[in-house]
Design a protein around this nucleic acid. Sequence first.
DNA 1: TATAAAAACGGAGTATTCTCCATTATTGTA
DNA 2: TACAATAATGGAGAATACTCCGTTTTTATA
Lengths: 223, 223
Amino acid sequence: MNSVKKVQRYSRQTRTAANQDKPVRIRRERRDAIENRERVLAAARQLFASKGVEETSMNEIAHAAQVGVGTLYRRFAHKGELCLALLWDDIERFQQLITAQFEATQGTRSAFEQLDFLSRELIRMTATHIPLLAAMQEASSGLRRREIFQGPFYTWLHQQIVGLLDQAKTEEKLRDCNPILVADSLLASVSPPLLAYQIEVRGLTLPEITNNIRQIYIEGLRK
Amino acid sequence: MNSVKKVQRYSRQTRTAANQDKPVRIRRERRDAIENRERVLAAARQLFASKGVEETSMNEIAHAAQVGVGTLYRRFAHKGELCLALLWDDIERFQQLITAQFEATQGTRSAFEQLDFLSRELIRMTATHIPLLAAMQEASSGLRRREIFQGPFYTWLHQQIVGLLDQAKTEEKLRDCNPILVADSLLASVSPPLLAYQIEVRGLTLPEITNNIRQIYIEGLRK
DNA sequence: TATAAAAACGGAGTATTCTCCATTATTGTA
DNA sequence: TACAATAATGGAGAATACTCCGTTTTTATA
């Protein structure tokens, strides 16, 4: 999930002394490329909705979008990237929500309270997008294993959590622990496949799940 | 991962009144079947060791074992089952170790101490078999998603953890939490792909990881 | 030992993912 | 507008996962 730019833009570069030997001519993205990407996303959205993410093949998407498979794969290396692109708006909105909340309550709330807010919202967000998120995670298997932990959303979440835990540590309210590992652990605890299983098979409710995460990662880590 | 019987045996049945209308003739497992299974396992072990689990295809295994693909797939529905079969001895040994330890220290150790022992050993075990375990987990993706949580090893571990947490709860030493969810969370925190990432990419050591799990799930949940 | 029942075999066939590259379309410039 | 540069296309093809079923092998019994 290296780089799924929703609106792909080439950064305009000027010819400075630094890159004079290798002049970079920038072109704007081609019209057909834009059109095709949008048709692909529309087709994927429609097929995923009507017959499920797992049940939809990349071939089908290419065909429905009236695009060759090669074209599809150049833009989206696998189904996971397609899912990420479809989720991108919601992910950005989520990040803005969290950031805004952190800024608005600056100083009035403890790091633990912020972490509680983040984890609640994350669980809500994950639960509402389980099929796409699970497919994203599962597409990053095998030789792509690491992409799960290196994707933009995971990385961002991890940083936020580590930041809050460091803050709590500064305030001397955090039990001895490694924030990096705790963040991994928290994120693993709310991973889409696990959440899906807990809800669909174990029959558990979102409040139960949310409360449990709170007990483990908020109350449990208080000094 | 429904039923990988390492030594497949047909339970001998007698003709009682109950099943008289449908007489069940029992045959012992065919010689060629036994031989083929052993050749498949040997070939898989060898190929996995020499070129890696991910890089070995089911076709290759079948060919190396001098067996048709149909034969391979009848016995092992996917690579995950093959991995499980290869790990089965170690898994049984692990289960015996844990069970023996629990019985030996019966009454002398708290549930938390037992849980600490279990999680330490589990991390050690997982770390020493990361490639096979990760492949097992990843083979259970997509439409097989649930198999991760319904496989024999996961189920056993989950039961043990829930049992210990219930015990701790009875002793009134456990913070308010749902043992079923805590068990899921702990197991997610030491899942093979995550462990692999923490070790290989984050450069963390096993003691660091073990200690962190202890802080979260042992110290953190103490009342 | 001969034979019937059935367990197991094997590989052709299908579906899917993903790559490669000759061809086509678009853009910026002259 | 015409042209050169190059970005993008599309579909054949390779690799892999997995299924299906006619044929072969084994077993238990007569």
